[in-house]
Design a protein around this nucleic acid. Structure first.
Lengths: 121, 121
DNA sequence: TCAACCTTGACACGACTCTGATAGGGTTGG
DNA sequence: CCAACCCTATCAGAGTCGTGTCAAGGTTGA
């Protein structure tokens, strides 16, 4: 059976990332290859795909690694995802009122109360 | 009728962000208040809500502003959103095969071809 | 009028990100 | 055996982020 895994150097030559960056991407949890028995990183088709897609994101959309990591976090932390969704809900519609999440409504009430008080600190 | 708008200083005292940061948040497009005729920023309930939610995101989830901006971009740029989704698709399932987006499949084929070639640079 | 606000613009600083380079040492394969 | 690779760890440097502060000037309201 043919060899299915690339070493870091081979992968580097195939995808344009330097070996240094491949190690960095692993450290950041973005592209995490398996390891051989002796500890060598092993890159397969899956990892090459990820690396290509990542390079594409940076080149075409000027996306930072931290932002891709954030997308990962959003996928993994539903509570975070919900909180961000809640924040986004407050940004889109300037005038129209539409059903907001419950806690937004009471925050709103709180602020209406605050706005009614005489500016005293 | 009562005053419905706060100046930057008043808003600052209400939400915990410094005036400097309120200007920065506006510059980053995260919380953009309206303006009075003479150019003063006017913060209303909507903006106070956004500011609170933003502070919450930072305090509870240690989210950077750039990351929230990214969430905004995702909402506004469908192409970016699709690209990120594509990348995420390659990250989740280690062994199981499941229907991937079309271009991922041909990328995969391309790499399989590459893997079959004799490592020549 | 005048104090207390507001505006924009700029400089500055610590912390962090991204990336290369280098050092000391293990693995592999002909 | 030994060249060519891999590993971890560390330093370094340019760039960005988040934030404070200061300067020069306009607005507001008692």
């Amino acid at each position: 059976m043919m060899q299915r895994w690339l070493t870091i150097g081979e992968a580097s030559r195939r995808c344009g990332w330097s070996p240094r960056m491949l190690r960095y991407l692993e450290q950041e949890g973005l592209v995490v290859p398996g390891r051989s028995e002796s500890g060598y990183r092993r890159y397969g088709i899956r990892e090459l795909n990820q690396l290509n897609a990542l390079a594409e994101l940076r080149a075409r959309f000027d996306v930072e690694l931290a932002e891709v990591e954030f997308a990962l976090r959003l996928r993994r932390e539903p509570a975070l995802s919900a909180a961000v969704e809640t924040w986004l809900a407050g940004t889109s519609v300037p005038e129209a009122e539409q059903p907001a999440p419950a806690w937004v409504e009471w925050e709103q009430l709180k602020h209406e109360r605050l706005l009614a008080t005489p500016t005293a600190a």
